[in-house]
């Protein structure tokens, strides 16, 4: 899916949730919203936060059931899948998106997230409108759920500026029992 369009969708979801008050599934994680940032409420099982607007920088934390199909690749994740294989599914999903161009993975390594074995991806790509996005993406599988934390920014200076803030968000991330 076109990344900017995707961000728009998130913003629309926010407006929808403001309008009729909810239906958001209980999250099984939480994370601290950094000072000066704001969380944009959504109806989906995610946290979306930004400082100056989603087109400049955003942090998105999402949980998705393993049974939920991806949009572009028919590959699936499964419980007990190795982090490397899960990272490959994420990369394949982006590669299969025809709106993404010049996609390049600059880092793909094992990582620990909140004590769980996962992966860390860094990649850059150009969207259909020609905007260059840089993204850091952490992910891990716990039970039947895939958790991912990503930080995206459109320009190098924006990306670097909030990198440490993003790492703090990652450090604050933890799984909790659904309320």
């Amino acid at each position: 899916m076109k990344p900017r369009f995707w961000i728009c969708l998130i913003l629309m979801a926010l407006l929808a949730s403001c309008a009729h008050g909810g239906g958001k599934p209980a999250l099984t994680f939480n994370a601290a919203v950094p000072e000066g940032w704001k969380e944009i409420p959504t109806d989906d099982a995610m946290m979306f936060m930004t400082k100056e607007g989603g087109y400049k920088q955003f942090v998105l934390i999402r949980e998705r059931p393993l049974s939920e199909p991806f949009q572009f690749t028919k590959k699936t994740m499964n419980p007990g899948m190795m982090p490397e294989a899960a990272a490959e599914v994420v990369v394949n999903e982006i590669l299969a998106d025809s709106n993404v161009r010049n996609f390049s993975v600059t880092e793909n390594t094992p990582a620990r997230i909140a004590g769980y074995s996962g992966f860390r991806l860094a990649f850059v790509y150009t969207d259909a409108d020609g905007f260059v996005f840089k993204t850091l993406y952490y992910g891990f599988i716990k039970g039947d759920t895939f958790y991912n934390i990503r930080y995206g920014a459109t320009q190098e200076d924006y990306f670097q500026k909030d990198l440490k803030t993003f790492e703090k968000v990652c450090d604050s991330f933890k799984l909790v029992a659904a309320k």
Partner: peptide, 11 residues
């Protein structure tokens, strides 16, 4: 092509 189909999950 085989590698491409693998990426798409078209087994």
């Amino acid at each position: 092509q085989g590698r491409l189909e693998v990426r798409h999950g078209r087994w």
